[in-house]
């Protein structure tokens, strides 16, 4: 049994890097995703903290892994990612460790835990099965989601859409947004980190004069398709799902470049000890089968190379260079949204 206090004291803080340069379906320096058929069977006890996400799909994946590995004794704790991150940090501070692995919907909660020095680096042999632009030492990216600008092509030519997110405040376009939505708040947080508070405040005030608010980002995309607004700000999958159900919906995707408007956030896994079972469980999440399932059923961007992207995803994406863990610092964003009366 691990002496957790010794572990805690001796663990070095791990550096975290955000996505670096150009996102593309690049396979450079990568090894194709493994097949579950090639993995060792999972045998023994494993405790997983599972930050909720993607409806029940994560649960479906867990159930499928369990079914495939009948000798795996899995203990799952489910809760919002931020609550689990707080729990892990608190447990670590108290000198105990109850989880082997933390699988979270967002990178910021992973970063907050990793920053406490309680995790283990992702083994290089596993990192090789992740796309190079999304390889981090401290955590393993599993699947991504992209900020986009859904627009109505019957009201707007693609060429008229700025490729700089900050420029939207200087247009007369009718814009849909969902300020109460978590994904939108992460996007504004990214803008605050990248552009500074003053510019973000100015942007919020500028866009507010031409914006219409919706409860959720599906509502934004639907409003774009109906022509209530010219364009909006939303995660990519709402548009892809809508187009899947209604191929003739009047909505297409535009992207900004190297700024918060093209942020790629990621779900991921943190290994919390040296239990090889945890590492092998992570390998299952990066298999071709699981990655394809996430892309197929949730329209998430697979992080393993060689796995087909969700149908309709823009091919050329240029996300900003950003430490995703900084997205955890939400309070100043909420303050800003309230100060500008956007919220």
């Amino acid at each position: 049994m691990i002496d957790r206090r010794t572990l805690l004291k001796s663990a070095a803080a791990l550096g975290l890097l955000g996505p670096t340069h150009l996102w593309a379906a690049s396979n450079r320096q990568s090894i194709a995703a493994e097949s579950a058929d090639d993995l060792p069977p999972l045998v023994g006890k494993l405790s997983v903290y599972l930050g909720r996400g993607e409806g029940g799909l994560y649960d479906d994946i867990v159930a499928a892994i369990e079914k495939r590995n009948p000798e795996l004794e899995l203990s799952i704790r489910r809760a919002p990612s931020a609550a689990l991150a707080n729990t892990l940090v608190a447990e670590a501070k108290a000198g105990v460790s109850r989880a082997d692995l933390f699988w979270s919907i967002d990178a910021s909660s992973l970063g907050a835990v990793a920053a406490e020095g309680v995790s283990r680096p992702v083994p290089a042999a596993i990192r090789r099965h992740i796309k190079p632009d999304f390889r981090y030492e401290a955590w393993a990216a599993i699947s991504g989601r992209l900020r986009t600008v859904p627009y109505n092509p019957t009201r707007l030519d693609a060429a008229a859409i700025p490729d700089d997110i900050m420029a939207f405040a200087d247009t007369d376009l009718k814009i849909g947004w969902a300020p109460a939505y978590g994904a939108f708040q992460s996007f504004v947080t990214a803008m605050r980190v990248l552009e500074g508070e003053a510019r973000t405040r100015q942007w919020l005030r500028g866009v507010k004069t031409q914006a219409r608010s919706y409860a959720g980002e599906l509502g934004v995309v639907m409003a774009v398709a109906r022509g209530e607004v010219d364009l909006g700000f939303a995660n990519h999958y709402y548009t892809l799902r809508l187009k899947q159900g209604k191929p003739d919906a009047n909505v297409d995707l535009a992207l900004t470049r190297n700024d918060a408007g093209s942020l790629v956030n990621s779900s991921g896994v943190l290994l919390l000890n040296d239990n090889p079972l945890a590492a092998n469980f992570l390998r299952y999440l990066l298999t071709d089968e699981v990655q394809s399932y996430l892309a197929r059923e949730a329209y998430e961007i697979p992080m393993a190379p060689g796995v087909a992207l969700p149908q309709g995803l823009p091919e050329r994406v240029q996300p900003p260079s950003l430490d995703l863990t900084q997205l955890a610092d939400l309070k100043p964003t909420l303050d800003l949204l309230r100060e500008t009366r956007v919220l």
Binding site: G55, L218, M222, Y238, R241, L242, A249
Partner: peptide, 13 residues
């Protein structure tokens, strides 16, 4: 929010 993904494809309205 956990179920709307499947619903969007079938009846977004």
């Amino acid at each position: 929010e956990g179920i709307e993904g499947d619903l969007i494809e079938r009846d977004a309205d």
